[in-house]
């Protein structure tokens, strides 16, 4: 029905199963819309009706995502009632306050909750889970700057994901680390990722017609299809109910 956008094309036709997707953005251009797109895609694909999303939100409250996703045509509240959408609000109940134990920023208990949620799922859903993290830099703040804690968490998630054949989508702000000498966290995240999506502003600045550009590097080996190692680059314009993708200069 829907015309497939350049982003979907670059990501590959099939479900993201077993993939780790890293979204990178900067202050000027937010990549949150890609996250919303992937969330909608996971929840409303008719072929994959057994899809489940575990969403870990450090950046925004549920009402924010709910409103956006409703405009995209996906009702999060209904999906949650059907146990297809699990939301962990890490913004409101700051993990470092309600339990001051060990200074792990609540990441250990968060992982415990994710594990519990996933193991409680019926067998049909088990290998169609997408874990989404918005965003990792705030998780780092929750862990009081302990890169190791965050990396441990991500590695555990990665293990979980590869064990069940699920996918992991994480957002991080690349410009935070750009000035560091050895930005371990972002480097390790990039290493983990099969698909890298980077949102940047245009070199000429922001315009009302072009909100920025996306670079998609798909490192996953696609079975039977042509290899997609070539990075795709295209411009985008974010709208309330959709995002327009187009090649540079293809817009009149």
């Amino acid at each position: 029905m829907e015309i497939r956008g350049l982003l979907d094309e670059a990501l590959g036709l099939q479900h993201l199963s077993g993939r780790v997707v890293l979204l990178e953005d900067c202050v000027e251009t937010s990549a949150a819309f890609v996250l919303h797109h992937l969330l909608k895609r996971s929840l409303s694909q008719p072929l994959h009706s057994s899809n489940v999303v575990v969403f870990i939100a450090f950046a925004q409250p549920l009402s924010h995502y709910d409103r956006i996703l409703r405009k995209l045509g996906c009702n999060l509240a209904a999906q949650r009632d059907n146990s297809k959408f699990f939301f962990f609000d890490m913004l409101m109940d700051c993990p470092d306050e309600d339990n001051g134990k060990g200074g792990d920023g609540g990441l250990v208990s968060l992982y415990g909750k994710i594990l519990k949620t996933m193991s409680a799922l019926p067998q049909v859903n088990k290998n169609c889970v997408t874990v989404m993290i918005d965003d990792v830099s705030l998780m780092e703040v929750a862990a009081r700057g302990s890169t190791n804690l965050v990396l441990d968490f991500l590695h555990y998630c990665h293990t979980l994901v590869s064990e069940f054949g699920c996918s992991l989508v994480m957002l991080n702000h690349e410009d935070i680390y750009s000035g560091m000498v050895s930005p371990t966290l972002i480097l390790q995240m990039k290493y983990l990722a099969d698909i890298l999506i980077k949102a940047e502003p245009l070199a000429t600045g922001l315009a009302s017609d072009v909100h920025g550009q996306l670079t998609v590097v798909n490192r996953s080996i696609v079975d039977g299809e042509r290899s997609r190692n070539k990075p795709c680059n295209f411009h985008f314009k974010v709208k309330e109910n959709s995002v327009e993708y187009f090649y540079p200069g293809s817009r009149t």
Partner: peptide, 14 residues
Amino acid sequence: VQKVAQINTQVPVI
């Protein structure tokens, strides 16, 4: 003005 609040929306304010 470097950033304008995007609350409940994904559309950036340009």
